[in-house]
Nucleic acid binder design. Sequence first.
DNA 1: ATTCCTGCAAATCATTTGCATTACC
DNA 2: GGTAATGCAAATGATTTGCAGGAAT
Lengths: 136, 136
Amino acid sequence: MEANDLKKAGLKVTLPRVRILELLEQHADQHLSAEDIYRLLLDNEEDIGLATVYRVLTQFEAAGIVCRHQFEGGKAVFELISKGEHDHIVCVKTGLVEEFHDPVIFERIQKIAEEHEFEMTDHSLVIFGIKRKSKA
Amino acid sequence: MEANDLKKAGLKVTLPRVRILELLEQHADQHLSAEDIYRLLLDNEEDIGLATVYRVLTQFEAAGIVCRHQFEGGKAVFELISKGEHDHIVCVKTGLVEEFHDPVIFERIQKIAEEHEFEMTDHSLVIFGIKRKSKA
DNA sequence: ATTCCTGCAAATCATTTGCATTACC
DNA sequence: GGTAATGCAAATGATTTGCAGGAAT
């Protein structure tokens, strides 16, 4: 019951919010843009406006439910935070996104923040490249 | 003589391009947005349109003269590439940007790209945080 | 002279916002 | 029933583009 997640976040349980949360869970392996979500909702016969999708996503971000990435090419993409801390490696040809987590890098990042006298709040690491064809 | 840099990049040596390149060199310690550059040009009595600034910056990026960052908050910022590889740590309160280079991180990044079978072309690492007041 | 470049204004794209209506508790 | 959320359309902000006139080789 994800209605509880919404309540806990101080958000009224409304149809748009529930549907969007469901979609994010169903597509937990992907990184969806506001427009992607809007299209998926339309496909599901849901009559939810694009503006609402943006509003809900922004609220979810503030509530710590999703996190927003900028990657490249205009549109921001979103994913559930519940998946845990990780960074991304994206293919500049296909747009394919894979995830990774490297403790060594994370440790160094903390150290660097420390050295620069920053209270670290967050970080963003994206590796760009071209995925090699797997030699079948 | 930066005119040569332009010629080498296959770009005709024109006043806007020279002026913008000069500005970037004069402000090599900063990260300027297209609008910042436009304003600086106006201050210098140069009559150069904002559209041209965008066009020139895009060409410079394609030519490998500058690199574009997205940091946070709408506008992209640019800096000369000649300064060498480095990443950024930015203060979410003040917008202050500092730079760093960490060989350990870089090495790990290469390794991760390798593990994921990516031909790495680039990476982006930004640490966000709040700069501590230096205790004077 | 020819081709590439520029300035301006209008166009585009992603995202946000005002406001009347509607849905939750 | 009252307040907060939604949908639509219009507004915004950053960046791009079409086109007529101008500069560089």
